[in-house]
Amino acid sequence: MGTEDEAEQVQQPAPIASKFPLSFWEATVASTVLVGFLFGFAAVYLTLPDSDYSFLKLPRTLQDLQLLRDNLENYTSDYTAQVLVGYCVVYIFMQTFMIPGTVFMSLLAGALFGVFKGVALVVFTATAGASSCYFLSKMIGRPLLSSLWPDKLKFFQNQVARRRKSLLNYMLFLRLTPTLPNTFINFASPIVDVPYHIFFLGTVIGLIPAAYVTVRAGLALGELESIGDLYDFNSVATLFLIGVVSVTPTLMSKSES
């Protein structure tokens, strides 16, 4: 009887709670960061004048973005600080928690602030959001990545280990080409031991070309029919060429050794 009871116990499925990849402490850290962002949203919202803000939502289509642009244009000149802070909080929040749609935010920057200010704003917020994601992942990311993308994580880890001596060039290459998604790079970099100063420089420099392409397109937002119009053959080829140039020193050092 004892043997049968033990066999039944072995065959019982593991409790659902044990499958959750984060410990209580890690979930608490993530929740605390989320609550901090919510307070930031509330602070920005409360400083705006009384009005109908039903248009305020994360854009998911070009139509949503055009509606948001049309309404925010009325506020940007009179409440520039609030719009800027609100924009930064939203962009950094999306980057921190890997929420898709930052391309719409980059288009919005161009539509509201022009090319020069828009590129500076996008690079700043994208770098801040990527850094926030980096440090959050440093605390809680390993179990999530191991659970969600084990193969992709192993590939990235092997590539980083092979290019340790020219890691900045490799990070620039990743930022400039679609080899790996930027959100994955942000979250996985601390797990595969990419030093923060390399991560930071690769992000700041590597995001500028793509930010310029997207922000400039925001100036003619009404002419865009789809997100695919942003990246025509010439734009993609240019970004890829820059990426190849950035990784060339790494390839040459390997061939010489």
Rank of each mutant, 00 (worst) to 15 (best):
Y212V: 12
Y196E: 08
E223T: 14
P178A: 00
I205C: 12
I198L: 11
Q159I: 12
L221P: 10
A211W: 04
N158T: 10
P190N: 09
N169H: 10
F233W: 12
P209H: 10
L221C: 13
L167M: 14
I198Y: 11
F173A: 08
N182F: 14
F173W: 12
L239D: 14
V215D: 03
S226V: 07
G228N: 14
I227H: 13
D193H: 15
N169Y: 09
D229E: 15
F173M: 12
H197N: 14
N182M: 07
N234L: 09
H197D: 15
S226E: 12
N158Y: 03
A188F: 09
Y212N: 01
N234C: 00
L180G: 08
L174D: 01
Y231W: 15
S235N: 14
N186E: 05
P190H: 08
N169D: 09
P178V: 00
A220L: 07
V215H: 03
A217N: 11
F199N: 08
E225V: 10
V215K: 02
G202I: 06
A211N: 06
L224N: 08
G222I: 03
P195F: 03
P190T: 07
I205K: 00
E225R: 14
V204R: 09
E225W: 01
P195H: 13
R162S: 09
K165L: 04
G222Y: 06
E225H: 15
K165G: 00
L174V: 12
I205Q: 01
L172D: 11
I191M: 02
L167A: 12
P178G: 02
L180I: 15
L230C: 15
K165R: 11
D229S: 15
I198A: 04
L219F: 01
F200H: 13
R162I: 02
R163G: 04
V192M: 15
F173I: 05
S189Y: 06
T203K: 03
L167F: 09
L207T: 05
L219V: 04
